[in-house]
Write a protein that binds this DNA or RNA. Structure first.
Lengths: 344, 344
DNA sequence: TATATTTGCTTAAACGTTTAAGCAAATATA
DNA sequence: TATATTTGCTTAAACGTTTAAGCAAATATA
């Protein structure tokens, strides 16, 4: 059907009666090629509609110009925004990204890693699945010498670059806010301790309670996978206590939403009877009734920084650099679910 | 640092004292290689931890084993689910996908197409941006002989494979449902007519009104870009009418959400004063108050079908096949926002 | 037994680049 | 003017596969 052969560097060389090597150098702006030749090459390339064969140059140079991105899921605003910003930065530098979703599954994550390694990506930017405890596959990436950058869900033991927000401080900001609203029994529906960010949020919660001289009650500290369903369950669990909390800080917006549904169903006034705070600032926190107070995770900044760190590695691969650990300040977005003043 | 050279087909050949060609054939299960040799090759490949060089085989065979996917955005459940299902099907066949987001921008979409063509993808699966009217870039894909499959946001003029739901019928189902709820003045906040799916929904709406002997009022038919913001605006516009509608059918869930926010703010009872129906069955339709009736778009099925159609092309590229146009039945999920019975 | 076919490999070239090494002509330096 | 350096290219090999063509040995066929 379409038998138009693609134009190659050779075709350009033939037109100008120079060697393909000269063409290649001209296109790469090599200083040892004359301006005159460069201009001619560029002109002919344009005329013949030359498109460089990415596979050939990748093979020869050993660089695929592809970066793998692994996220637990893309249908969360946080991850999709991070991805978009990674893409924006990397596209400008001639890189493309391959996105894979782990769906929070350890097995799927391992498959993704194998797939990306097979595709010869030049680097991997990842946020770990909830399930992941065994770091073997991540060590595999490191051992191949491929730059690995983690964001949000990281892991100290891996000893790689990391970009995230200050989870420990976020808990402090939240507790302080709730205390200022007059709350005295603050519960925490947290993530699993084995994930660093959730562990930090839990520790921040515990320390902030101490700081404000509030008692730490084991009944009020619950670990969960932070899905909507578990948010509902754990909220019910809290409501069944003899001594109910007057505030609940949930370590994820989806679980916070589940908790809110239960509170609404039980006709419990939010924030007056129980104040509610989520984490992540997903768009729906601003859509439900009442709107949910949450922590902005700076997804744009995280995406951009992750891309920059990768580029740094890509540009000087030889020098063993010291690790980049970038911790961004979190920002509390106060909304109806915790702001009693709007109800006075 | 990491100087371990990668093992190649040559290394395997050396160990077994056969030619690299024989190794390649053995790994591809060529019928002209003895079982004995195949077994030996597979064993040595395993021992040496051989990973085929995807770039080399892609260059030689002219196939990159990459498929490009273009979506308006990934942070909608519909698109992220479609993508996930495309990925699942294609991964099994050894393909990887490169996801790009157009952000509903025509320019970004064109860039994406160029990027994907540059990366030498073997095919492109796309859903068009709202802004896109000029089809030049899509024609470019076709003219290069690269399989192009559209889903959801398609375009008749392009004459390519398409997978989507029956938008015309969906409008009929919605109008029928609203009529059964006693609604007599049904408004439609639609998408732009130049996008085929929205045009079909509008035509379905018009024809369904006729069928049920309801008058068609120009004031009640509005085109929009279906963002939350425009959902709010257009709803306000409808509320400012002397003769308000008693039902609003919005062609997208996000705009429906915006409309609902306005209705809630204005203390208008939903569904009793005004019934509301969205489109897309985004998860948040089941989270807000009242829960929004919507159309399930069968994202899983659409993703899988799109992948299958691509594979069909990839497998027999020579034969000019007739086009696949797969139109799936839509399904109405009735919730509180339109179900007056639950309020009686 | 003579010829034809099949089996199981090898040889060599190719995919389209990039890059190290080298060389002649032009220019700079002493 | 003689030598050194720079400029602007060319040559040839390489990246790791795949594949068309071919060939000897083994097997089938007449």
């Amino acid at each position: 059907m379409n038998t138009k052969k693609k134009t190659t560097i050779k075709d350009i060389a033939n037109v100008l009666n120079i060697s393909p090597a000269a063409v290649s150098k001209a296109l790469h702006n090599d200083s040892r090629i004359s301006e005159k030749t460069k201009k001619a090459v560029r002109q002919v390339a344009k005329n013949l509609n030359y498109q460089p064969n990415h596979l050939a140059s990748a093979l020869r140079s050993g660089k695929s110009k592809l970066v793998g991105v692994i996220v637990p899921r893309t249908n969360s605003n946080f991850f999709s925004s991070v991805i978009q910003n990674i893409e924006e930065v990397l596209n400008k530098e001639g890189y493309n990204i391959i996105i894979t979703q782990s769906n929070e599954s350890y097995k799927k994550e391992c498959d993704s890693i194998d797939t990306l390694l097979f595709t010869q990506v030049d680097g991997i930017i990842a946020s770990m699945a909830n399930e992941t405890i065994d770091l073997f596959y991540y060590e595999k990436i490191k051992s191949k010498g491929i730059p690995l950058i983690l964001f949000d869900r990281g892991e100290n033991d891996l000893n790689v670059d990391y970009i995230g927000i200050n989870d420990y401080d976020s808990s402090h900001v939240i507790v302080k806010h709730l205390v200022s609203q007059g709350c005295k029994r603050i519960a925490h529906i947290g993530g699993f301790k084995h994930t660093r960010i959730y562990n930090n949020r839990i520790n921040g919660y515990i320390d902030a309670l101490k700081k404000h001289h509030l008692p730490l009650d084991d009944e009020l500290l619950i670990e969960s996978n932070l899905t909507i369903e578990e948010g509902r369950e754990k909220m019910k669990q809290l409501l069944s206590l003899k001594n109910r909390p007057d505030a609940v800080y949930v370590a994820g917006d989806y679980a916070a939403l589940g908790a809110l549904q239960v509170l609404n169903e039980e006709k419990i006034s939010v924030p007056n009877e129980i104040a509610l705070v989520g984490f992540g600032n997903e768009p729906f926190t601003d859509m439900v009734t009442p709107r949910i107070t949450s922590i902005n995770q700076h997804s744009e900044e995280i995406g951009k920084q992750a891309a920059f760190v990768f580029l740094k590695h890509a540009k000087n691969s030889i020098i063993k650099q010291k690790l980049d650990k970038k911790i961004l300040d979190a920002e509390l977005i106060i909304r109806d679910s915790s702001n009693k003043k709007t109800f006075l």
